[in-house]
Simulated scan of single mutants.
Amino acid sequence: MARIAGVNIPSNKRVHVALTYIHGIGPAKAVEICGKVGIVESRRVNELTDDEVVRIRETIDQDYLVEGDLRREVAMNIKRLMDLGCYRGLRHRKGLPVRGQRTHTNARTRKGPARPIAGKKKATR
């Protein structure tokens, strides 16, 4: 099992699929990395030599923002919006959807489980 960017990537999968296990690398970037390093995408991780794994690791470290650094940057961007007090920052602070979705119904992922309202009658048929 190869360890790249602090993540153990699965050894029985193809290289471009295994690279997507790293936070910040999707399918397109994985194919791009394979092209830069010169590895055929159909090869599996357990078939890679140590030199190829090192080249992949160096390419990711130089050219891409992944894992902890990416998470930190995203958190800092959200914190900046909250400190500014702009509309998006207020929505983050209140735990509501940020990108214009409706909240009258739905939005349960952001708002959490529905809380019953005292005195509200249940709908009857």
Rank of each mutant, 00 (worst) to 15 (best):
2 A>L: 03
11 S>E: 15
11 S>V: 11
16 H>V: 11
18 A>P: 04
18 A>T: 11
19 L>N: 01
22 I>K: 02
23 H>S: 11
25 I>M: 01
28 A>S: 09
28 A>T: 14
29 K>L: 07
29 K>Y: 03
31 V>L: 15
31 V>P: 00
33 I>D: 00
34 C>H: 05
35 G>N: 15
35 G>E: 14
36 K>D: 01
38 G>S: 12
38 G>K: 15
39 I>P: 02
41 E>C: 08
43 R>T: 06
44 R>A: 07
47 E>G: 07
47 E>Q: 09
48 L>S: 10
49 T>Q: 02
53 V>A: 01
53 V>N: 00
54 V>Q: 01
56 I>H: 00
57 R>W: 01
58 E>V: 06
58 E>C: 04
59 T>G: 07
59 T>Y: 08
60 I>V: 13
61 D>N: 14
62 Q>D: 13
64 Y>A: 01
69 D>Q: 15
69 D>F: 14
69 D>R: 15
71 R>T: 08
71 R>V: 09
76 M>N: 15
77 N>V: 03
78 I>Y: 05
79 K>I: 03
79 K>L: 10
80 R>C: 09
82 M>R: 02
82 M>G: 06
83 D>I: 08
83 D>K: 13
85 G>I: 02
88 R>T: 13
93 R>V: 13
99 R>H: 13
99 R>V: 07
99 R>S: 14
102 R>C: 05
104 H>T: 13
104 H>M: 12
105 T>I: 12
105 T>Y: 03
107 A>P: 15
109 T>H: 11
110 R>F: 10
111 K>E: 06
112 G>H: 02
113 P>R: 10
113 P>K: 07
114 A>M: 10
116 P>G: 05
119 G>H: 02
122 K>G: 07
124 T>N: 13
124 T>S: 12
